[in-house]
């Protein structure tokens, strides 16, 4: 089956609705992030909370990429998720959108590298990898990760990779598998 790259009203609404669901979930995760950060701060590991929860924040990207199979769908899904979180009163205001775009492009890259032709376990894992690398690079600049000693830096990267793999990889695959069984949408590889 050939997928068209044009966005129609129904797709846009569906994408926004999915983004809103994720936005609501991100918003619920916010307090968990704060608690975890408070718990880890005294030993100087506060930023690890960000890496532990990273997977949840980047889920909307690969899932939208997988569901819509259009160029830009992962970026748009993740970005809209961040916009929704922003308007729900997420703690970061308009700056949320920057993270949304960075994470969206990061997960989109996984699908770009396979030429938007493969939608399977391989491209999902590739997306997990690009997400981890790109978002980590961004945190090295923005949150000053680049200054940490190398041991901590590697530990944070591994934590983030595992978290992203569990949520954006394994969990996304499980969700898509459930959707496949309903035959409501073409989620299989073309």
């Amino acid at each position: 089956m050939k997928y068209s790259n044009a966005w129609h009203l129904r797709d846009i609404i569906l994408l926004t609705l999915i983004a809103i669901f994720f936005g609501v979930i991100y918003w619920i995760v916010g307090p968990v992030y704060n608690l975890l950060t408070v718990a880890l701060t005294p030993v100087g590991l506060g930023p690890a909370a960000n890496d532990i929860l990273m997977g949840i924040w980047v889920m909307a990207g690969p899932l939208s990429g997988y569901i819509f199979k259009k160029v830009g769908s992962a970026t748009l899904g993740e970005f809209l998720g961040s916009v929704v979180e922003m308007f729900l009163g997420g703690q970061w205001g308009a700056s949320t959108m920057i993270s949304g775009i960075v994470q969206g492009i990061a997960s989109e890259l996984g699908f770009t590298f396979t030429g938007y032709k493969r939608y399977d376990w391989f491209s999902l894992n590739l997306s997990v990898l690009t997400t981890t690398i790109v978002t980590f690079g961004w945190d090295m600049i923005r949150n000053g990760y680049a200054k940490y000693n190398i041991g901590l830096l590697i530990a944070l990267f591994v934590i983030r990779l595992i978290s992203t793999w569990i949520f954006a990889g394994v969990l996304t695959k499980a969700i898509v598998k459930l959707l496949d069984r309903t035959h409501l949408m073409q989620t299989q590889a073309r």
Partner: peptide, 16 residues
């Protein structure tokens, strides 16, 4: 919360 987390981490885990 995140601000102090980042600041404390820099003080304890780096030479910055």
């Amino acid at each position: 919360i995140p601000a102090s987390a980042l600041a404390v981490a820099i003080l304890l885990q780096s030479n910055a």
